[in-house]
Amino acid sequence: MADQTISIQSATAETPLVRLVLMAIAFLFLALFLFLPLVVVVSEAFRNGVGAWFQAILDPDALASIRLTLLVAAISVPLNMVFGVAAAWAIAKFEFRGKAFLITLIDLPFSVSPVISGLVYVLLFGSGSVLGPWLKGWGIEILFAVPGITLATIFVTFPFVARELIPLMQDQGSADEEAALSLGASGWQTFLHVTLPNIRWGLLYGVLLCNARAMGEFGAVSVVSGHIRGLTDTMPLHIEILYNEYNFAAAFAVASLLVGLALVTLVLKTAIERRYAD
């Protein structure tokens, strides 16, 4: 019986030994590169006990960075969500010239270095530019202030929702919408009652990934923020400052909040994927 099993397996499957080795390599690699970093963040964060963790989180500068991170995400994620829905509607429901080019342009921020995403806004609104001093004359600060941080975050998280929705809506086609329209529904009614329920999970998925990136963005924000403690430091920037001050416990305490965000994102993502599959 055992011989038979092995001879059957050997044709289209690996021998148990090869299988074991492959699984061991995969698990070891994932443990080394993905699991251990998580363990380190959590263990370092609570190294000095729960009290020290709370103290680090409740520090006024840390709280200010949390508030700023939430504010920036609260502006940039909805804007990119509206863009994502509009772009996906235009691309999935219509045939027009240059569509492939438009899709490539939407994906562009994914292949641009985050530092360059920040650099372009420094050049656009910096002291050497035309726009920056002019806006300053009106009392509007872009760089080293919340608007610049928000713009850089929007740049970096730009494609997430659109990228999720475009293939989904292309797959779904327009038959449902055409039916609704022929029955007398208006464009908005069709969108709200027909399209939106069809795309809600994909939309949520895109918003989730967009939000995770918006709250965690470092490179782009670092270039435009000016690193003013308590004013223009987002959570990732605050982590950097604490880390460079050798205040590791506090750095990891703030970092553990972002690990929590990442884990919640992954759990929700997996749950949505399951719903998708059903």
Partner: peptide
């Protein structure tokens, strides 16, 4: 790695 902030 997609969900975890790079600084962390």
């Amino acid at each position: 790695p997609f969900a975890l902030p790079t600084a962390v």
